[in-house]
Design a protein around this nucleic acid. Structure first.
Lengths: 197, 197
DNA sequence: TGGCCTTGTCATCAGGCGTTGACAAGCGTC
DNA sequence: GACGCTTGTCAACGCCTGATGACAAGGCCA
């Protein structure tokens, strides 16, 4: 989103990194199909051809973006006791759209990117692979114990579904504050129940 | 998917209907962006230009498809007591892909189409409008009682999330039969709990 | 049978996409 | 200061998309 009129110093690593971050923002806000190489290039202030040269193809860029995200595992940062509340708060109240580096909502970013491109045929392979290796499997392992795979699926389903529901209803804008609080509480309880067994 | 080598009898209504059904199958299996007018036309055995003439634009066709689906409300067909079990069974065991008319999985079709195109910027307006008027609002009304909007969001989230999780993990193929049963049971209980209060 | 409205086809358009290879400009090194 | 590698730009390609308007052919009615 930041255009530089003063020419960027010639630095391959920095440019590559800038492309990666711009792409991450784009994939965070739009689906795989809707993100264009030219869009990303414009954000960085660079020619689209450069992206092809640095990353190979659009799909490779997408993979690189996914790899650069602190996927899944971050959801499990913090104590086990308030997992439900943390997640619920993040989804109901957190701002997932701005997508700034290391900031609020950053934890959800990898997941958000997956959800955005979930429908795209072209990205499906990557999405499936990534969601398994970066989301389902770590969550299953983290939950542990009896019936962990099943409980992880349920938790993941609830998390994804609520995140999508939020997108669909524009940040749960039709709910008032009390209702949002109630939603967060219900979600927290449901998630925590799945974690605790 | 059915190609007719013998020329279709000239019948505007029938052709229009055939286009609508072919489009419904396509939108059921692919995202808005991935479905091409030429694909739909080929399925029907007709020229793509005809679709434009009958339906106006691709977006209009998408709207017509959504209108033609028995959305949302169908999820609430049947008794209130086994809502959770019905839905859970549909999602965990039902085949949502074949997408045949009036057959198993048909109830989920409208929802499936929404989920498929959830990431597309071009379809977002229609998706948001439809998911509200055909899914969230009826569900809220059907649940009724105290806190209905919140409980409806939770239920919708769980349904959508589990449906997506299913797509992501290829029909929960990594789970064995016992685990699938456990998943269905957990989901049924969670949903029913939301319905009952 | 001849006319005419309806139904469907065909060629084509403008625009967008990802990608490519040839060229320009910066910058360190000898 | 000139060479040469790196970094970035530019123009173009081939392909695909949704949409349009001119045209062919079926089918009904007089």
């Amino acid at each position: 989103m930041v255009l530089c009129d003063v020419p960027r110093p010639r630095n391959a690593n920095a440019t590559r990194q800038a492309i990666l971050e711009a792409a991450r923002e784009r994939f965070c806000a739009e689906s795989y199909d809707d993100v264009g190489m030219r869009d990303v290039a414009r954000d960085v202030g660079v020619d689209a051809a450069l992206i092809s040269r640095y990353f190979g193809s659009k799909e490779d860029l997408f993979v690189a973006v996914m790899d650069s995200c602190k996927n899944g595992r971050d959801l499990m940062d913090g104590s086990r006791e308030d997992f439900g509340e943390r997640l619920a708060r993040e989804i109901v109240y957190g701002d997932m759209t701005p997508c700034e580096y290391e900031d609020g909502g950053a934890k959800m970013r990898g997941l958000l990117i997956l959800l955005r491109s979930i429908g795209s045929t072209k990205a499906m392979d990557v999405v499936q692979r990534t969601s398994n290796s970066r989301f389902f499997e770590p969550l299953t392992q983290w939950i542990g114990g009896e019936d962990a795979p099943v409980r992880a699926r349920m938790a993941a389903g609830l998390i994804m579904g609520m995140a999508i529901g939020r997108e669909l209803s524009d940040g749960y804008s039709s709910l008032d504050e009390a209702q949002k609080a109630s939603l967060a509480q219900r979600m927290a309880r449901a998630l925590q129940g799945l974690i605790d067994g």
